[in-house]
């Protein structure tokens, strides 16, 4: 499955939320999109899974414009893992994952053994089979996330969209979830918050700021201190980690970010600054 986003623009009244955004994801790639809050990451994803219709530009999946597909066909190609939960309504894990079969079933069809097997193997794949009869609302954040990924697997889509799948998770689950996604070898486009996770797991990255793509390429290409300063407003040092061989970004607090051997009055000024916060 390949994704192509051709210069989409989306406005709400006079605010331009997305401006000429172009993205390509090749088959089998795991591509991340990063950016500060409000940079338009989620809006971009929402355009791809058809929750939003861009004003100009278009999006294709395997060469077909997503808005030319009917809703169910689009959902058979793209599975999306969001952070939405059923709220007041209780579902057991089994039912949550069985929902993934929705785009595959006509309204007269009943769930059959094949559907049940798909649900079971999806739950098994994310290590949640023993939770099948548990109420979804009683699960921890990491468990919920894995169930939602299982639902995407049961959906049998060949393209996966993830909206900050590691949000609010303990470190261990962050790694587990991304290891899991990586291991699926499904074409994936994911919004991420954590730059180090992105550097470790993604093949390529897009960096967004104020609705535009400001950098694109491999983690080595995009993670430059100057860019991090400009986009995220932080001082950072980018290193290659000796064990992973991946980039490692160390954020520098204000007092360490200033050049070495500061003049005494400068040092005290930055101390006051930190204390003042």
């Amino acid at each position: 499955m390949t994704l192509h986003v051709e210069n989409i623009t989306w406005r709400v009244e006079e605010h331009t939320i997305l401006r000429d955004v172009a993205v390509d994801v090749a088959a089998g790639e795991l591509v991340g999109v990063l950016g500060p809050n409000g940079s338009g990451k989620s809006s971009l994803l929402r355009c791809i899974y058809r929750a939003l219709k861009p004003d100009t530009g278009y999006i294709t999946l395997d060469g077909d414009n997503v808005w030319d597909l009917d809703a169910r066909e689009a959902a058979r190609r793209t599975a999306t893992v969001l952070q939405e939960t059923p709220g007041e309504f209780e579902f057991v894990v089994w039912e949550m994952v069985l929902m993934g079969r929705t785009p595959h079933k006509s309204m007269f069809a009943r769930e059959n053994t094949e559907d049940h097997n798909l649900v079971e193997s999806a739950l098994d794949q994310v290590g949640m089979l023993s939770f099948a009869d548990r109420s979804f609302s009683t699960l921890s954040g990491g468990e919920k996330q894995r169930v939602l990924i299982a639902r995407a697997l049961a959906q049998q889509a060949r393209f996966l969209i993830l909206d900050e799948p590691t949000n609010h998770l303990d470190v261990r689950y962050q790694l587990e979830i991304l290891d899991l996604v990586r291991g699926l070898q499904v074409t994936t486009f994911t919004a991420l918050h954590d730059l180090n996770l992105a550097a470790t797991y993604c093949d390529r990255l897009y960096i967004m700021a104020e609705g535009e793509i400001v950098a694109a390429g491999t983690p080595d290409d995009v993670f430059q201190p100057a860019l991090l300063r400009k986009v995220f407003g932080v001082e950072a040092e980018v290193q290659v980690h000796p064990r992973t061989g991946k980039l490692h970004i160390v954020f520098l607090p204000a007092h360490a970010a200033s050049p070495p051997d500061p003049a005494p009055h400068e040092a005290s000024a930055s101390t006051v600054l930190v204390g003042g916060r």
């Binding site: 809703a71 959902a75 969001l82």
Partner: peptide, 23 residues
């Protein structure tokens, strides 16, 4: 009753329903 699956998707969340192919 014929729309039971889309109804399930809908209470699971607006965007979830969209991503499961429900208009």
């Amino acid at each position: 009753v014929l729309q039971a699956r889309p109804l399930n998707a809908l209470i699971a969340g607006e965007e979830t329903a969209i991503s499961l192919g429900v208009n």
